[in-house]
Design a protein around this nucleic acid. Sequence first.
DNA 1: GCAAGGTC
Length: 926
Amino acid sequence: MAASGGGGRAIRVLNVAEKPSVAKTVSGILSRNQGLRMREGRSRYNKIFEFNYTIQGQPCQMMFTSVTGHLMEMEFEGRYRKWHSCDPVDLFEAPIRKHVPEDKLDIRKTLEEEARKCQWLVLWLDCDREGENIAYEVVEVCLNVNSRLNIWRARFSSLIDREIHQAAQQLARPNQLFSEAVDVRQEIDLRIGASFTRFQTMLLKDAFDFNFSTDGRNLILSYGPCQFPTLGFVVERYWEIQAHEPEEFWKIQCSHTTDEGTANFNWMRGHLFDYTCAVLLYEMCVEEPTATVTKVKKQEKLKYPPHPLNTIELEKRASRYFRMSSEQTMKIAEDLYQSGFISYPRTETDSFSTRTDLHILVQEQQEHPVWGPYAQRLLDPSSGLWRNPSGGGHDDKAHPPIHPTKFSAGESRWSEDHKKLYELVVRHYLACVSQPAVGAETTVEIDIAGEMFSALGRTIVAKNYLEVYRFESWGGSLIPNYTFGQQFTPTSLTLESGITRPPPLLSESDLLDCMDKAGIGTDATMHDHIKKLTDRFYAIKEGSHFKPTNLGEALVMGYDDMGYELWKPYLRSMMEEDMKAVSIGNKRKDDVLATCLQQMKACFLDARVNKTKLFQALEIFFDRTNRTTGGDDQHNHAQQLVRKCDVCHDSDLVLRKKPDGKFMIGCSGYPQCRNVIWLPGSISEAVVTTTVCNICTPGPGFMIQFTFRRLEIPPNFNVHHLGCVGGCDDIMRQLIEMSGSGQRNTSSAPARGRGIAAPSRNDSRNNNTNNQQQQQATCSFCHQTGHNSSDCYSLTSQNRSARSQRVNSNNGDSPIPCPTCGSLCVLKTANTESNRGRKFYSCQTQGCKFFVCWEDSVPTTRGGGSGSATTTSRRGGRGGGGGGGQGGGDVRFVSATGDPVSGRSCFICGDPSHFANVCPNRGMRN
DNA sequence: GCAAGGTC
């Protein structure tokens, strides 16, 4: 700002902060606590501080008060606020207004009273987009009562003396673009949220018998651009788990024990899914069990302490360490903050400003009976324990990372959760300013009969931060000393089996991570979105993991079947990009609003036309009620007879109008008879006439006079149509097909499970024809019935390519390209007692685990007796989950058809009474 | 009775 000339009469300045605590702190800093007075405002939380200050030579009489976040809310005007006052689609254009809600009126009153007395208004809101928007809300209120106000913006990124004084001396103007970006978000959120929520709720709430208790609450099937993608994450993981098919795998384990300890060597192939391959390799190892050390690598490893704590990390860690919900964490953190024990808990920042005095914070903790001694050592330069914390690269420019602000050895009023959370904040802070843990790691690799194994030994040289951060550990294991070229005989060498496991349900920590990565919600709201899922009966929490309810799954399924990704995070990400463009002036507010709302309205209309998908999805889980219309429907017309029901031959098909204004024809014998004919969503009126169709049987079938909405049907169709729903009417049939509706299949309930992880438009779970075809199919690959080769269990993308390479280009002697890593696989011949002469391909690249048996020489284990080479090994499990957990289990001998083989003797000792996996001599052979 | 964002 320009200098205002010094020395004149003091001007009165109204200063407004985003929250009471900032008003208090900034007042303290600016006044240097000299002559600082406090008086009550109209709101009990928002006090007014008074002091004198000089801005660029201009004496100022400062009045410093605050708001509590947003002062205003956006809402629909008058008649659009009632749910049944309008068609939900009208909410995309309905007039909206920003207004001060009831519970903020007292704050407005304070602002008005103070603004009248002042010449300047200085806005001390947080320096982010929301803060700028709140600034304009304050401006609007103040200008209303004093249009001559000179308006300034103070920009500061932390509550540090120098920065606050600097902000006061370098006042600027508020940034309109930042504020407009928030206006865009608010309007889009409101219009999309309200329209879809009303649509879903009115469509489905009374149409199904939701078999869960709502605890007396009104059931609302809400939609929101943050809550739905959050639900999407939960459902997607659930589907991934359901789609998982366990697979058995095999691996060779080797251990070696000496006086110095035990080394457990892991097979560098990981595990193989093919039993024959695994046995073949295992036998080779057992035949020539001498291990040769091929590599010994010793190095120092550091384990670094975590970055300074921000909100998401606090929530994730409290969930992991204490199983505390993010909602509870924030509630407790807020309480600790309010009582002055920790810093502001809603922050994205994970690095400390260089101006923060980090030592003072440690000094305060020296007295603590448990971690006090550690704090003392930290402060002792001779300990060498101190380290300036590294930052995680996030900075909201408004708040520091969460850290302790006041010492406490535990307050009497604290709950267990208070104690845990305070301890986490303190220990985390102490860890941040500590040296990393130091370990000495030894990696040893050995070769047994050409197979590679590796073992890792670690000793912790210095625990450092791990001493105070008890929530983390660093496993260490001592292994014997090895030298390059050394040979030894393993103590045990076993072939073990396991099965792949699906990934777990999403934990709260996982969910926060998904949201954070996808930009769903803000650090201050993420826990609200998670809680909303349980409040709306969309998900339940099992321990610390989230599982979708039938309702949550059905809603996502419905939209997925429509082909919409409303439950995916992309919509929010696009909005976020647009907001950013508005805030930097690359896009205009009105353009973004118009484009986004136009797209969402088209999507809404389309969803409404395709609402049968939602019905079908919900029917998988819930019974229909006979309340096909909402009980509070003002537009409910009398039912009109169309014809006799052709399914139950007992009741009548009747025309009804539903609460959302749409028409349907259903059997009056519902729920005993569920025959229903869905009509196009483009109908605005429908009246059964007395005209009888003379084509359709059984008669009489009364024709219906339809009126369609012009914009929702193709131009070549007439808006008025006297139609028949008995099957003779091509126009009706075409319109129904266009809207994706049709008569529901009443013969059987759709299959409930879905075997997919990825979104599918055309999956066959509701398609009986597909299922029948599947059951009759014979796989051309494994020759088993019940599936086609495209779905063959034995056929992943990897072994598909292996197969085609084998068939197309190889006669069995020359190297083949490795389907896994692209390198070469060479043909080898086994030379063990039981497998002598058998040929197999093995990839030459170290670390690549591709391995395939050659069909002429080895029988297959899967896929029947065709002799096809299905014996391809595979790496890892599905879904990138690292192959899942590993179960124990016995080694079984299996035949080419997969049946256990009897009469086979142990290949280690030859005893027919047992198999090699339980052979007493299996550990070793001399 | 709807959203998400502030904050108490």
